[in-house]
Simulated assay, not measured.
Amino acid sequence: MTDNAISKLESLPNEILLETLQLENSHNLILTWYNLNTRLNSLIEQLHSIDLSSISYAYFLSYCSLLINRQHQVSSLKLSNVDSSEQISLFLSKFPLQNFHHLRSLSLIEVKQVEINEVILNLPSLNHLLYLLIDCHTTYYEEVLLNDITSTSLRSLTLKSTNAIHYNWSNVGRLCPNLESLNVNFFIYVDQLVQLLSSVPNSLKKLSIALRGDNNYSNIKPFNDLSLLNINTKIENLYISLGPDVSFSDFKLLIKQFKHLKKLSTEMSLPWNIRNTESSLNGYEWVQIISEHLPNLHTFSLRVETYKEHWNDQVSHSFNTDFWVKHRW
């Protein structure tokens, strides 16, 4: 770097330098910027967003040293066990979560069961937390038991897992009364969805779920329950991925519960022996659903995995009527 370049860099005001440093990941901050001079060190120590998700163990320890006595300044924190299986536990042992008084966003990647329990236990002390992401670490045989998540400040909750997560969905609205967005990135059964829809707060506007049709451990007849409950959620944005055991007839019963939808994104797989009159490949069926039950819908997307022989001129024409041309979907 030339003297002229150094001069130009150091002539920038602190506000611009802070914005520039914030764009760097934690690895580059330590490797490239830290210890160049006292001013840059001071600015790095003022950063409010901390991302330790892709960083070696040595750099992780170096960055931890910068956090001593300044946890209260951090507004966004991202931790991961991907590169070091003990990173999250080590971090929490050094810096108790309740010390992050102004934390607004918390993301945990490949987090273990014992770490999840510790984090959830301390959530009520994070009075400013708005966003929480829990990406569970699981093995092929392991299932995650998730304790009740309690946060009156939380606005967005994302749960991810390759395996099943056991959670009491009936308490969501009571324990997270101001939740606006819920992303459930693993399959849940319809009886669990019944619990969820019966308890979500009116503040919930966005829901993303992956749905299975049958739970062998439940005595509930789930889709019949949905038709009887007459649930009236305020959800406006719905993404739903349907497992192959959820029929289109069942889906039609389900979607009637979302009368306030403005945006609907649907993904589903069809069996090889479908009948077009009962499948999601029938555009006329979708026109009826939208016209009769989704009066506020203005954005719609549909992705169907099926065999090529199911797509023919009749199917194509059913999605090319005046209704579809008018809406440009």
Results as ranks from 00 to 15, higher is better:
Trp272Asn: 12
Leu261Ile: 03
Phe248Lys: 08
Lys263Arg: 12
Leu253Cys: 08
Ser279Tyr: 11
Ser265Leu: 08
Met268Ala: 15
Asn282His: 13
Glu292Val: 01
His260Gln: 15
Gln288His: 07
Asn273Asp: 14
Leu281Thr: 04
Thr277Ile: 04
Glu292Tyr: 13
Tyr284Leu: 07
Lys263Tyr: 07
Glu285Gly: 01
Leu253Thr: 08
Thr266Tyr: 04
Ser269Trp: 09
Tyr284Arg: 09
Ile255Gly: 05
Ile290Leu: 11
Thr266Asp: 01
Ser279Trp: 09
Leu270Asn: 10
Ile289Gly: 03
Thr266Asn: 02
Lys262His: 13
Lys262Asp: 09
Glu285Ala: 11
Asn276Tyr: 10
Leu270Ser: 12
Thr266Trp: 09
Ile255Ser: 07
Gly283Glu: 03
His260Cys: 15
Glu278Phe: 13
Lys256Met: 06
Thr266Glu: 04
Glu278Asp: 14
Ser269Gly: 07
Lys252Asn: 06
Lys262Val: 02
Thr266Phe: 07
Lys252Ala: 01
Thr266Ala: 12
Glu285Asp: 08
Ser265Met: 05
Ser265Cys: 08
Glu285Asn: 14
Phe258Lys: 04
Glu285His: 08
Ser291Gly: 02
Lys262Glu: 15
His260Phe: 14
Ile290Tyr: 11
Ser291Pro: 00
Glu285Ser: 12
Gln288Cys: 00
Glu267Tyr: 15
Gln257Cys: 10
Ser279Leu: 03
Leu254Ala: 02
Lys262Ser: 14
Met268Tyr: 07
Glu278Lys: 12
Lys259Asn: 13
Phe248Arg: 06
Thr266Met: 15
Ile289Trp: 07
Ser269Met: 06
Ser249Met: 08
Gln257Trp: 05
Lys259Cys: 11
Tyr284His: 11
Lys259Thr: 10
Val287Leu: 02
Asp250Trp: 14
His260Tyr: 15
Gly283Thr: 02
Tyr284Glu: 03
Ser269Arg: 09
Ser249Gln: 14
Ser269Leu: 03
Phe248His: 14
Leu253Gly: 01
Phe251Met: 04
Asn282Trp: 10
Ser265Gly: 00
Ser291Arg: 12
Gln288Met: 01
Asp250Gly: 04
Tyr284Gln: 04
Lys263Val: 02
Thr266Leu: 15
Asn282Ile: 00
Leu270Lys: 07
Asn276Phe: 10
Phe258Trp: 12
Ser249Leu: 12
Asn273Thr: 02
Pro271Ser: 11
Phe251Tyr: 15
Leu253Asn: 10
Thr277His: 11
Trp286Ser: 01
Leu281Trp: 13
Lys256Arg: 14
Leu270Cys: 10
Phe251Cys: 04
Ser269Gln: 09
Lys256Tyr: 03
Ser280Leu: 07
Glu267Gly: 01
Phe248Ile: 03
Ser280Cys: 15
Tyr284Ile: 01
Trp286Phe: 09
Phe258Glu: 06
Ser265Arg: 13
Asn276Pro: 01
Phe251Glu: 05
Leu281Gln: 10
Glu278Trp: 09
Ser269Phe: 11
Gly283Asn: 06
Glu278Leu: 06
Ile274Asn: 08
Ile274Val: 09
Trp286Tyr: 05
Ile290Ser: 03
Leu270Gln: 13
Met268Asn: 03
Ser279Val: 02
Gln288Lys: 13
Leu264Met: 05
Ser279Cys: 07
Glu292Gly: 01
Glu278Arg: 09
Ile255Met: 09
Ser265Ala: 11
Trp286Cys: 00
Gln288Pro: 00
Ser269Tyr: 13
Gln257Asn: 15
